[in-house]
């Protein structure tokens, strides 16, 4: 599989936050869900891909080009959708088209207006008056009009109503149909990722917690439930986000440690949402044990 995006050992630190050794790859023709809690480093990673943030170390390659040296060339092949509109919001779509056209050698005016029509967007109304869903569609229409090979979306579905979210996901699924284009889709709404992503990268506290196929993630973890007394100490250590109740416990467990578990314990497949919740709980547990130690 040819990778359209490769990140190797990306490190970037700000005051109070650091991305540490972030590495993952997105193959051509697939959608990758880039998930993590707010503040986990998703936007910093995306800003680094776009050369808006300068990594302290590590290498980012897009279309086989270096993100620092060839950023202009890279951006010509990128479709970028942020959670808010970055275009001049007092202009209508016709003027926006006139502004963007010269920047892209592959720009197709016909495609832009065809997409606007298909998305039901008016071309004579200031884009600042569009709803959030319409703004997303406008940015996507722009991306599709210059034949972007990689679409990067940063939290596009947050704040969208269910219908607009559904439409957006359909557009993305259609976008990669020719198997030449890919999507990197950052979100904390995991239901969207479960629906359309082929690959998932989970970022937690600035580090990659998991990166692989959605199926691998689903098969790698289970939610374990039962009575604490039935849980062997060796397995207890492997539990992630252990949470004890009056009548039992719940925790996330890597499937590698399922063998030999007492029959009294129940386990079921973990959803991405549950995985994120248990990772966060693990953090909380670690902080609590550190406080106790102090």
């Amino acid at each position: 599989m040819e990778n359209i995006l490769e990140i190797n050992g990306l490190c970037k630190s700000y005051e109070g936050f650091a991305l540490r050794d972030v590495s993952f790859a997105l193959p051509k023709g697939y959608i990758m869900g880039f998930v993590g809690q707010n503040g986990s480093g998703k936007t910093t990673t995306i800003r680094s891909i776009l050369n808006m943030a300068h990594p302290d170390s590590g290498k980012i390659s897009v279309f086989g080009l270096d993100s620092r040296k060839d950023s202009v060339k890279i951006r010509e092949g990128l479709g970028i959708v942020f959670d808010s509109l970055y275009l001049a919001d007092h202009l209508d779509a016709k003027h926006i088209e006139m502004q963007l056209r010269p920047f892209y050698s592959d720009w197709s005016k016909e495609e832009f207006f065809r997409r606007l029509k298909a998305f039901g967007l008016p071309d004579n109304k200031p884009v600042g008056e569009f709803s959030k869903g319409m703004k997303m569609k406008l940015m996507i229409a722009a991306a599709l009009s210059h034949n972007a090979r990689l679409m990067i979306l940063d939290e596009p579905t947050s704040g969208l109503d269910p219908v607009a979210r559904d439409e957006l996901l359909d557009i993305l699924t259609e976008y990669i149909e020719d198997e030449e284009r890919s999507v990197l889709f950052s979100t904390h709404i995991t239901a969207d990722v479960e629906r359309i992503a082929d690959f998932i990268t989970v970022l937690h506290n600035g580090k990659v917690w998991f990166s692989g196929t959605k199926d691998d993630l689903a098969e790698s973890y289970v939610v374990l439930k039962g009575s604490e007394e039935d849980l062997p100490a060796a397995v207890r250590e492997k539990c992630i986000g252990f949470h004890g109740y009056r009548n039992g416990f719940e925790a996330l467990l890597p499937t590698d440690h399922l063998a030999g578990l007492p029959g009294e314990l129940e386990h079921e497949k973990a959803s991405i949402d549950e995985i994120l919740v248990y990772i966060a709980k693990e953090d909380k547990n670690e902080r609590a044990s550190q406080d106790t130690a102090v």
Binding site: R47, L50, N51, M52, S71, V72, K73, R75, E76, L78, I80, F82, S84, L85, Y86, L87, A88, D89, H90, L100, F103, Y104, G128
Partner: peptide, 16 residues
Amino acid sequence: ELSKSSDVIEGVLPAS
């Protein structure tokens, strides 16, 4: 001032 909603445009458009 009117040309953009934010500085992000400098990171989006293919220009140095």
